[in-house]
Design a binder for these strands. Structure first.
Length: 949
DNA sequence: CAGCTCCGC
């Protein structure tokens, strides 16, 4: 499209009419003499000689240059005129949208879809052009696109000049005395987030006991594993090889235009001597890079409905922009300004900071809203929240009427909810011209966001970052883990003080690396200064996580071994060196089989930049990439595949449907997910009874959408009403949605842990009921942490489950389901089955299982209670919670069911040959015998099933 | 007998 566009602009002569005529002639097939080499090239099809080509090329380039010069001259001369013309044109288009607004949403979408192809320059047969549904002549079209181009150029130019003119680096406010201390900020956030002190349900002493226990376990784990692991990595007698076996690095590039910025930054801004803390904070606000852009920002927001902000880290955009807008009066008339964050901690800490700056109490004028914790009141005008939370608010208030501005922060991270949110916001912006949108993104993606929002204006704000040197390896290395360790030690020996951050892929790898490190440094003794190893990953107990924030003692150096948690979620001060092996674990989803897998994949360029940037938070840093610069250029993708494209969309689809968005294929995702994934989701929702045949939301679906859990879980909850066991079912749902890290199994106490776990499986009840038993037992033990430790259960997961359960219980009331308890295990299992009937598999002769819906072999995960029983008999028919691909295809959380239940509960699914097949291939009734033979290969559901019974 | 990148509602 871009090429086409360019060509059109360039080939445009001063006299548009002539061009138009030429084109018309061409269309009629009239051959005419080429008037310029450029055009000649266009018309001549025969392959010309290279000499000729070269000449042609040169002439063409000259012509091109001339064209560009002319255009630029014209552009400068007529800039104001053009702008005006553009504005009128724009208002015409807006006018047209106005009429469209009166049309229903469906009709509008249909119309838009029809125009989509023709938008921006696809001509239709009779030579007419359409732009946003407005019919234009070619001349008009050309002028419009030309104007648009110039307008864009002008804006970019403006942004660029302003950048140089106004920018100056102030002191970083975080380091300022009395300012926010990162460490404190984090630890406070952590406590509120995970430790649950606020609820006060736990005794302090218990907590300490447990912490101690955890710590001991962790240490025990590490030392025990030590012996076996180091055999594999034979490094016993090679202490000195740190100095021999060096990796050659090439310094290739310097990240960012940082040098200049920092050079400016050393200018003393002048010490502020405030008498009052608030004054001081106010002064600090003025030192942020964004302060210089305040007026421009406000103007831009006023003039444009959508504004893209490119604010680098440290520009202060998240804290300042909402405040500026508030000061400018966007909160008058009871309207709110919303700002979304992808993470809970970010939402909380930013809100805290802003309330401090404004001198108000958190939760009054400034508040935050995250799951389990709504810290807002009726007076709140600046509301920070997680993006998922705003998504839920859409359900209550589909047009977001109470907001005057919505700011989507960190949009470049492209989380699932951000993507859905962007689509929705774009949609409602059409109906609400008064709603302002601000999208903040990273440099690389700004254009893309701008395109998505119909060429929205981009405002660039410089950040406060230090330069980072990037070193590549000279030759690729086979074992990146080994290379990472060698590189870290090399940095330690050769580089000046500063902590090291090593990115690894997962817990196991980190643990291995930790041992190797300890082993290698032990023998070096006093040859090198002390090296402190700090592992960090999400599953690590909180107290141990806190270790990374402890300041490094004098003379020592800290090595942080992190998963990609350190890429975005937390920042560690003092990091000067980053070692980036270039891998991370990523989840992918195969919509056809419904299988998720977690695999180590190369990272993208964007995330390698992000990793490198981690070295430049507090000073000039260095990043060592354990791949060559050739690898970087040719093997890495530009950006990570957005989450929408690699995840199960059932939940998203349900949310969208309950928002009245019917036509999902035309829903504007920035990067549309594969159609298969959408279909799969629709199919599932239809099977669950959330949608009817036409794809409309049913009453069941409406109730399901209320619960913030996966559709199958919410179906199970809704169905529990019928079986009078909602009390038990929500416990199971809560336990299932915490993830699979309920049971704790330290390597040194495996037997104990297993026997402890087996207790919950007594009677071979299945994993679902076992989870219920765990929860109930914990409840009876008065939510004791001690109890968890005794039973080898992760407290953190249990607390989470409790929170989720509480929330689900509150929501039951809203969908008019009575809380009822039952001892009938069969009833509970049936309720579970009504949500999970699509996840069933049948035992085969060879001992493996085959999923009933799509033929797919799978195995019971060894962590399941069924496998743990001593003389276990494999059940004939099981229901599973999820299918994961690791070394094999495994079913996790498995419960035996009776095949009869399937027909009883989901006759539509198991009597007919599946949902899709029914729709597409076997819509007419088939004689029984015939149907059997013809369909048994692809659709074994009924056939196999009947044999099974 | 195997494994838990990471967020979020």
């Amino acid at each position: 499209m871009a090429k086409q566009f360019r060509k059109k602009v360039l080939s445009r002569e001063d006299d548009e009419d002539e061009t138009a005529q030429n084109r018309k002639e061409k269309e009629r097939g009239v051959k005419r003499q080429p008037t310029s080499p450029h055009e000649a090239n266009d018309d001549d099809d025969d392959g010309s000689e290279s000499e000729q080509e070269r000449l042609c090329d040169q002439r063409e380039r000259e012509q091109l240059d001339r064209n560009i010069r002319e255009r630029d001259a014209a552009a400068t001369r007529k800039l104001s005129e053009q702008k005006e013309a553009f504005a009128t044109r724009r208002s015409n288009i807006v006018g047209d949208v106005e009429t469209l607004r009166k049309v229903s949403r469906q009709e509008y979408l249909k119309k838009r879809e029809a125009n989509k192809l023709k938008e921006l320059g696809e001509s239709i047969e009779d030579g007419e052009y359409l732009y946003k549904g407005v019919k234009l002549t070619e001349v008009e079209y050309n002028r419009l696109s030309y104007e648009k181009k110039i307008y864009e150029l002008a804006t970019k130019h403006e942004a660029a000049t302003h950048h140089d003119q106004y920018y100056r680096i102030p002191e970083p406010y975080d380091d300022h005395e009395g300012g926010v201390n990162q460490e404190k900020r984090f630890s406070v956030a952590l406590q509120r987030c995970w430790d649950d002190d606020l609820n006060g349900r736990d005794k302090k002493s218990n907590q300490f006991a447990e912490q101690k226990a955890w710590e001991d376990q962790q240490i025990g784990k590490a030392t025990l594993k030590f012996g076996s692991k180091n055999k594999r990595r034979k490094c016993d007698e090679e202490y000195d090889f740190v100095f021999e076996d060096q990796i050659e690095f090439v310094k290739k590039s310097v990240l960012l235009e940082g040098d200049q910025m920092i050079a400016n930054g050393n200018v003393d801004v002048g010490k502020v001597q405030p008498s009052h803390q608030l004054d001081k904070l106010r002064e600090e606000r003025k030192t942020l890079p964004i302060y210089a852009f305040r007026e421009r920002l406000l103007q831009d927001v006023e003039k444009n409905q959508v504004l893209i902000i490119v604010g680098e880290t440290g520009s202060g955009k998240t804290t300042q922009i909402p405040q500026y807008l508030h000061e400018a009066g966007y909160t008058k008339g009871g309207k709110k300004i919303g700002c979304t964050q992808p993470r809970r901690i970010a939402a909380m800490s930013v809100a805290a900071r802003v309330s401090q700056e404004m001198g108000v109490k958190l939760g009054h004028a400034v508040g935050y809203s995250i799951r389990f914790e709504d810290c807002t009141s009726e007076k709140t005008v600046l509301k920070y929240m997680t993006d998922g939370m705003l998504l839920r608010e859409f359900l209550v208030e589909p047009d977001l009427a109470s907001y005057s501005v919505v700011m989507v922060d960190e949009a470049h991270e492209r989380t699932l909810s951000t993507d859905v949110l962007l689509g929705l916001l774009k949609d409602i912006a059409r109906y609400r011209p008064d709603l302002k949108l601000i999208i903040s993104s990273a440099t690389l993606d700004a254009e893309k966001f701008s395109d998505f929002f119909d060429s929205a204006k981009i405002l660039r704000i410089p950040g406060r970052r230090y330069p980072v040197d990037i070193h590549y390896m000279e030759a690729p290395q086979a074992d990146y883990l080994d290379a990472a360790i060698v590189a870290a030690l090399q940095v330690h020996v050769t580089q000046p003080p500063g902590d090291i951050l090593v990115f690894l892929t997962g817990q196991e790898e980190i643990e291995t690396a930790e041992e190797i490190f300890k082993h290698r440094t032990r023998g070096l003794g006093t040859k090198i200064s002390e090296l402190i190893i700090c592992p960090i990953y999400a599953n690590l107990p909180t107290e141990l996580q806190a270790k990374i924030f402890e300041p490094t003692p004098e003379g020592a150096r800290k090595v942080v071994l992190a998963t990609n948690i350190a890429e975005t979620s937390l920042t560690i001060d003092g990091i000067k060196y980053v070692i980036d092996p270039g891998f991370s674990k990523m989840k992918s989803y195969n919509p056809r089989s419904g299988m998720e897998s977690l695999q180590v994949t190369p990272i993208s360029k964007a995330s390698s930049m992000q990793r490198a940037g981690r070295a430049g938070r507090t000073g000039h840093g260095k990043c060592f990439r354990l791949y060559t610069s050739y690898n970087y250029d040719s093997d890495l993708d530009d950006s990570t595949v957005p989450e929408v494209q690699r995840t199960n969309l059932a939940n998203v689809v349900l949310t969208l449907k309950s928002l009245g968005i019917h036509d999902l294929v035309n829903f504007e995702f920035m990067d549309p997910p594969p159609c298969e994934a959408l279909l799969k989701a629709l199919e599932l929702l239809f099977a669950l009874g959330a949608l009817n045949k036409v794809g409309e939301l049913t009453k069941v679906g409406r109730r399901m959408a209320e619960f913030p859990v996966d559709p199958m879980l919410s179906k199970m909850i809704v169905a529990s009403d019928k079986y009078k066991c909602s009390d038990e079912v929500i416990s199971i749902a809560a336990m299932l949605s915490t993830g699979s890290s309920i049971f704790y199994r330290p390597k040194d106490k495996q037997v104990h842990a297993d026997t402890a776990r087996l207790r919950f499986h007594s009677g071979n009840v299945g994993d679902h009921i076992a989870l219920l038993k765990v929860y109930n037992a914990w409840k009876e033990a008065n939510y004791s942490t001690q109890w968890c430790y005794e039973n080898y259960i992760q407290v953190r997961s249990m607390k989470r489950a409790r929170d989720i359960r509480d929330q689900l219980e509150r929501l039951l009331e809203r969908v008019e389901i009575k809380l009822s308890s039952s001892n009938d295990l069969e009833a509970i299992k049936k309720a579970v089955t009504s949500g999970f009937f699509p996840h069933c598999s049948r035992l085969q002769k060879n001992g493996s299982y085959r999923t009933i819906k799509h033929p797919h072999t799978a195995h019971i995960h060894p962590s399941s209670g069924i496998m743990a029983l001593e003389h276990h008999v494999l059940p004939r028919c099981v229901l599973y919670h999820e299918l994961v691909l690791t070394t094999k295809e495994y079913m996790r959380q498995v419960t035996e069911i009776k095949p009869e239940w399937l027909v009883e509960i989901a006759p539509h699914y198991y009597q007919l040959n599946g949902v899709v097949e029914e729709d597409y291939s076997t819509s007419k009734k088939m004689p029984r015998g015939k149907g059997r033979t013809s369909t048994s290969k692809q659709i074994p559901n009924l056939v196999d099933y009947s044999i099974c019974v």
